[in-house]
Simulated scan of single mutants.
Amino acid sequence: MGYLHKGHLSLVSEAHQHADLVVVSIYVNPGQFSTSEDLSTYPSDFHGDIQKLMSVPGGVDVVFNPYDLYDYGRGRDSKGVATVVSKLFNIVEPDVAIFGKKDYQQWRLICRMVRDLDFSVQIIGSEITREDDGLAMSSRNVYLSPEEWKKALSINRSLSKAKHAAENGQISCKRLQDSIILAIEEAGGNVDYAEIVDQETLEVVEEIKAPVVICVAACFGKTRLIDNMEIST
């Protein structure tokens, strides 16, 4: 959705490993904003984004920047990520598509959509890119004050601690969730959700018996951040 950072640019580098021609879509999707977020204040720097894209070895061949993917008449009420991505796929017709795994649910949703609707595109999930201190890179990080940034580090720390506990025998998801929520709230965050789900189906699990992912969303000040961590025990 624009305001690119190193995490986005890593997707471009990954794309170059799989394709001869690279297309980057930049589209701020209104349907991906929570009720507490203001679409009009989402950070934007299109000229800067272009410069960053061209700084990646190999650059990009096309930047697709549609103004409105919904302005096609009345009765088009579905504005979720699946609708937007299916529109992008139909327009661009890619052979391979790279998605960051920071939004784990989105990545898995797109994998399922491609499978269910028989899109002829290979979906590749790219690992989360983090700041040196562990905070997951996000365009929304620019909203954080220095103090809020420090508090937000509790997300990655609590996820890492929970993963370590799970890898050392803790299989109770409730105990792991409680530890994550407590750590984030003690740091001054407001937890939206902390769920442990099956990596493939995204179904909530009570005990870790197969590969899972811990997905977290939390607010620090007015900034809502998401992060996740896979556990393959």
Rank of each mutant, 00 (worst) to 15 (best):
Q17T: 11
S34C: 08
A19D: 11
V22G: 08
H16Y: 04
H16V: 02
H18L: 07
H18C: 06
V28N: 14
S36F: 08
S40F: 00
T41N: 05
S40N: 13
D38H: 15
D38N: 13
D45F: 06
Q17I: 00
K52T: 02
Y27T: 06
Q17S: 14
I26D: 11
V28S: 09
F46P: 03
H47D: 12
Q51P: 01
V23S: 12
E14H: 09
F46G: 01
Y27I: 09
S34P: 07
Y42K: 08
Q17M: 12
K52Q: 15
D20F: 01
S44M: 09
F46R: 02
Y42N: 08
H18T: 04
V24Y: 05
N29F: 06
E37I: 09
F46C: 04
T41Y: 00
V22P: 13
H47Q: 07
S13I: 03
S34V: 05
T35P: 04
E37Y: 06
T35D: 14
P43G: 06
E14N: 07
V28H: 11
K52E: 11
G31I: 00
F33V: 07
S13Q: 14
D45W: 04
V22W: 10
S44P: 02
D20A: 07
S36V: 09
T41L: 00
K52C: 05
E37H: 09
Q51K: 13
V23N: 13
E14C: 07
D45N: 15
N29V: 01
Q51A: 04
S13M: 09
Q32Y: 00
T41Q: 06
T41G: 01
H47G: 02
H18P: 06
S25Y: 03
H18W: 10
A19E: 07
L21M: 10
T41M: 00
K52Y: 09
V28T: 15
F33S: 13
Y42V: 11
V22C: 04
Y42E: 09
A19C: 15
T41D: 09
I26S: 09
Q32E: 12
I26L: 15
S44N: 13
N29P: 05
